[in-house]
Design a protein around this nucleic acid. Structure first.
Lengths: 108, 108
DNA sequence: CCAACACTTAACCGCGTGGTTAAGTGTTGG
DNA sequence: CCAACACTTAACCACGCGGTTAAGTGTTGG
């Protein structure tokens, strides 16, 4: 679940929609598809691939239950991302006027 | 700067490296390239394209200064992302055991 | 058992993304 | 002025990603 995998996993609207749909709790693949793919005519295999990507990124887990597969969120999988965003933006507020830094170097 | 654009912009290591390099403040494209592309033999045009993506996502700004171009961070461009991550993960802690939800439905 | 169900895997395909080199655009220093 | 500098745009190419259909894998009701 390195940052790289999480970010590319989230850079897809279908995948983000899956996360939204799972917020109340785990769902079977079928139920998930019914909620997420309302309208868009996406095939089951395509959807399954998206789930694979999310799973590979460590964002969700898939467990076979009877003949269905239940998908659940993997809590703390976005911690690294949250930390990165936080630590990145924190310093931005202190950023001086956009030209100053360059001009300083120029003068030296 | 919709979430979609920001996420796909960040889903590239070179682009993230640019943000890291800009944390202390704005830099010219050349200086930025020197810091970010140490080692990887990436061409200037390729790098310029990455900057274009970041700019289109609203994450950085490019200003011509003399014959150089200064790149600066666009503060608050990651606010939407931070909010999304926050609001997404907040509920995860409350997520019930991964099977419960499904089994409830099954019983009904 | 086995037919049907709920998905996944396999094989394939078009296209967008990330890379290249070559040519173009501003902006000085001399 | 104009040559050189600092990038960017244009044109092109390879390959990975998101999509498809067809076939495979577990699992259970009857």
């Amino acid at each position: 679940m390195p940052l790289q995998d999480v970010l590319s996993a989230l850079a897809d609207p279908t995948r983000r929609a899956v996360l939204e749909a799972l917020r109340p709790g785990g769902l079977t693949v079928g139920e998930l598809a019914r909620q997420v793919l309302t309208g868009e005519g996406m095939s089951a295999p395509a959807f399954s691939k998206h789930l694979r990507v999310l799973e590979a990124a460590g964002v969700v887990r898939r467990d076979r239950v009877g003949r269905t597969v239940v998908v659940t969120l993997e809590p703390s999988s976005l911690d690294e991302l949250a930390t990165w965003v936080e630590s990145t933006t924190r310093h931005w507020s202190r950023t001086i006027d956009r030209l100053d830094r360059y001009l300083e170097q120029e003068d030296a």
